[in-house]
Amino acid sequence: MLTKEQIAQRIAKEVKDGYYVNLGIGIPTLVANYVPQGIDVEFQSENGVLGMGPFPFDGEEDADVINAGKQTITTLPGASFFDSSMSFGMIRGQHVDLTILGAMEVAENGDIANWKIPGKMVKGMGGAMDLVASAENIIVAMMHTNRAGASKLLKRCSLPLTGVNCITKVVTNMAVLDVTDKGFVLLERAPGVSVEDIKAATEGNIIINGDVPEMVI
């Protein structure tokens, strides 16, 4: 099984030279730490910054420079600030190449639920609905099962949806899967995790084509 850091590390391999990338809160934020040397990417945060850098040094934090998780950040050379409407213009207008976000549930048809548990938790969708409705390249980073051990990769989402038919790839602590017209296609398995383990932890239709290689992290 992968740790959260290792999930981020594996997803970082999907980040290509020249990409503008939007990172969601949680595991996706960690992806920035593992982008390979020698490729140029810029991170967008929907509250209005492109070219996000690492956290500031102690004592250098600025209340006017934060990310969408409200954490203090820095900017890198070439960075820019803009208003919320322009920020979502970048997202809706498909100028952002890759979106990485967390989820509570993903369905085999690419539906995603990640903003509300009726009667229990209502924090809001933030920018997630805009992101998943417009982005063409969306990777979900999440645990394969919930705390109760139930699969988060389902036939149909049970929670209120964030978007329909939009997720293209899922990276979990157990596996890397593509989301296709026919369901989840198993691409890689985590070290020490068998195909049978993954099948047992996946409620949605899962397609296995030949030998499934172990992830290289």
Binding site: P56, F57, D58, G59, E60, A63, I66, T72
Partner: peptide
Amino acid sequence: EKRIEQRTVRQK
């Protein structure tokens, strides 16, 4: 006051 909600820093 410009309060910071999530003060996140790295050490030198």
